[in-house]
């Protein structure tokens, strides 16, 4: 950090000023000229929070994707199907027990087991053959999509989360001041804040797991040099299965969380697969920190695009991807 400041004093100054302006935009009461330029403050802050919470959801899906790739060099294009399958299984479990949290747990476990089965029964047989693995995952995702359509039909499903998770929370951010001088505080859906909280918690847990535990150390060693790791006597296959279980389980968990925030319907698998692909391309394949940065960029871009120029908002996401590919092809945090 200090090194960076000393070496790039100009850029650190720019970053600091930008941060200051941004914080001011969020917390200050907007003067009229600013409202004239950017529209209502409520729209701006809400959009920012929406971008942040969507980024949380994207991170949950993409972190598993990037983890699997980092260790196994396996681009799992069936990752979106795991998201959707997790959502459906979670829905069934939550319906049967009447408890949303059981749905969450069942989705995580069921998809983690699915992930292990996929790794042991299929991917292990074609190790090191990246193209074949990729083609097989595409095949699996197509078959899975049709099977899910046959079982759960095309209807849109929505979870019923516990009462205390629904409703709006008042934030300590003033959105406007009434003529009487009374401050109006911003309200924001509590559930979406929960999504963000879960994403941050998962991010921290992943970081601790990778950097502070013995297994995490093995995984990091495997990312750097698989053969050397197995030469030291570590059962690489076990580590692979574990990573696949965590990656897939996170996708299943995200299915329930995302299905509650938005909804479950056929086609969601492709949408989240595409989102995770863009996120990891921007953030850098194989890096969990990169996934967080990529998710933030894409989530914010999507929401600001939707609020301020809805018609062409979609372009923004891909524009970011194009710029990153042109300037830094390995992604923001990727290693060349």
């Amino acid at each position: 950090m200090r090194q960076f400041v000393e070496r790039h004093s100009f850029w650190s100054f720019v970053i600091l000023v930008a941060l200051g302006v941004f914080l001011w935009l969020i917390f200050a009461v907007w003067p009229e000229w600013l409202e004239a330029v950017l529209g209502r403050k409520k729209t701006f802050v809400n959009t920012f929070l929406n971008g942040l919470t969507l980024a949380g959801l994207y991170f949950l899906v993409a972190s598993g994707f990037t983890l699997v790739f980092g260790l196994m060099r396996n681009v799992n294009l069936a990752h979106g199907s795991m998201y959707l399958l997790g959502a459906y299984i979670g829905y069934e479990a939550a319906e049967a027990t009447g408890n949303w949290f059981i749905g969450l747990a069942v989705a995580f476990l069921a998809i983690a087991v699915t992930g292990i089965l996929l790794q042991v029964l299929i991917f292990r047989r074609m190790e090191g053959d990246a193209l074949r693995q990729t083609m097989v995952t595409i095949g699996i995702s197509i078959i899975a999509a049709d099977l899910m359509l046959a079982i759960w039909s095309g209807a849109t499903y929505q979870f019923d989360p516990p009462e205390w998770l629904i409703g709006a929370a008042e934030l300590p951010i003033i959105s406007a001041v009434r003529s009487s001088g009374e401050a109006v505080y911003l309200k924001y859906p509590l559930y979406r804040l929960t999504v963000l909280g879960v994403a941050v918690a998962v991010g921290i847990a992943l970081w601790l797991f990778l950097n502070r535990t013995r297994v995490g150390m093995m995984i990091r060693a495997g990312v750097n040099d698989r053969d050397m790791l197995s030469a030291t006597g570590v059962n690489v296959q076990l580590v692979f299965a574990l990573v696949f279980a965590i990656g897939a389980g996170l996708a299943g968990l995200a299915g329930v969380i995302g299905g509650t925030a938005l909804s479950i319907a056929p086609g969601e698998d492709i949408r989240y697969l595409l989102a995770s692909l863009v996120v990891v391309i921007v953030g850098g394949l194989g890096s969990v920190t990169g996934a967080a940065i990529g998710a933030l960029l894409i989530g914010l871009a999507e929401q600001f695009g939707l609020a301020y120029f809805p018609t062409y908002g979609v372009v923004l996401t891909f524009l970011i991807m194009v710029v990153v590919l042109a300037v830094r092809p390995q992604g923001v945090m990727g290693q060349a």
């Binding site: 809400n46 959009t47 929406n50 971008g51 969601e268 929401q303 939707l306 609020a307 809805p310 979609v314």
Partner: peptide, 17 residues
């Protein structure tokens, strides 16, 4: 008037606007 693409899932920002 707000025009969103088909398949858009997250309307929260449109709602805020």
């Amino acid at each position: 008037r707000f025009w969103v693409p088909i398949g858009n899932k997250d309307y929260s920002s449109v709602i805020a606007a």
